[in-house]
Design a protein around this nucleic acid. Structure first.
Lengths: 194, 194
DNA sequence: TCCCTGGATGTTAGTGGCTAACACGTTAGT
DNA sequence: ACTAACGTGTTAGCCACTAACATCCAGGGA
């Protein structure tokens, strides 16, 4: 009870995810039926869907959100909201990038060339968007004002473009720089940059 | 040859869309199989898919993009890019709103309460996003720079939040105002607005 | 006028994502 | 051990979507 229950359930879930990535890499997303993933993980078709609501969800998940929320909240509330998000990302991303570059790139590439996944990229960033909302409007837990929603959605979309650009040419660039560039573009004033 | 070919093809397409909306309203999106839509329109199952690549596409399409592109391009390039988009939307939306309020609301409500559609809302605004990109970067037709992509994606996302907020409480508010509020939130400087 | 070529449509037969219903085994708390 | 709960398996089925091939219809040229 003390430690997270991490029982058989979690283990099957991990096995499924691992099997899925292995097969996606080898045969492509569309070329890999759920049934095959389940077989590879040694479980049945149905067990897969008990762990992931849809096939797409095996890929589209992400966990570094609480950190972002905290960082956004800690920026001075006087700052323009986009600037707060930008600063938070500038603090959080380099570390995540250093630690998980390979993982991020693999996921991004999968998403990019599976149409079904690209369509749902929005979902894959839903977590970050929520984190931004909570960080920007700590008061209204459930129903943030439109302005806050708009800023959170906009920054998330800009970040998605950065990730896309990064993955499109094979992870050549430095993701944290690209992300900062994307968010900076939202703030540009006449006279600044080019 | 002179006038747009608007032959049988276009008519079936329209019939399909009309049938789809009628049935979606009555039975809900998930409660309406494609086969039924086709039957209602007097054509076969397959004909549906020849006109719409997916069931979702019957709802997720939109045509007022060329106007947006022109308006964005006509704003002084010295202005910050978000401001250009904001101004263009402020010019274009009121007219569209006056003319098609009912249609917009219906579509938005359908999208809101069909999970399959909500997931793909990004796609439904893909057209506007492209229009913003072309308007902001008239030079690079095919591969706009990251900053342009980021701004276009961000503004599109902010607009989507406005539409969502508008439809969520039944179209009570004034959509053009909400849209402007959402885009303004991206520009807020310390000292302005609360 | 007749043909005949191309586009829109129909038919059939799949594949594969996803759900429902129900039975079974293993594990945990008592 | 007893039982309750949970994870799992089996089966059966719905539906979105695709492929392959047949058909029908309009319009242009012989």
């Amino acid at each position: 009870m003390a430690r997270r229950d991490r029982g058989r359930g979690e283990r099957t879930r991990d096995a499924l995810r691992a099997a899925a990535y292995r097969l996606f890499l080898r045969d492509g997303y569309d070329g890999t039926p759920v049934a095959r993933i389940a077989a590879e993980a040694g479980v049945s078709h149905m067990t897969f869907f008990r762990h992931f609501p849809t096939k797409e969800d095996v890929v589209l998940r992400d966990d570094h959100d609480p950190l972002l929320e905290r960082l956004v909240r800690e920026r001075p509330p006087g700052e323009p909201p986009v600037a707060r998000v930008r600063a938070a990302v500038a603090l959080a991303l380099p570390e995540v990038y250093a630690r998980e570059r390979e993982n991020l790139l693999l996921r991004a590439r999968l998403i990019l060339d599976a149409p079904a996944l690209r369509r749902r990229m929005g979902d894959s960033m839903r977590g970050s968007q929520d984190a931004f909302e909570r960080g920007l409007a700590p008061g209204s837990p459930d129903d943030p004002p439109l302005a806050v929603r708009a800023v959170a959605a906009a920054c998330t979309a800009a970040l998605a473009e950065a990730v896309t650009a990064w993955a499109r040419d094979g992870g050549t660039g430095h993701l944290p720089d690209l992300a900062d560039e994307a968010l900076a573009a939202l703030q540009d004033r006449p006279g600044e940059r080019a």
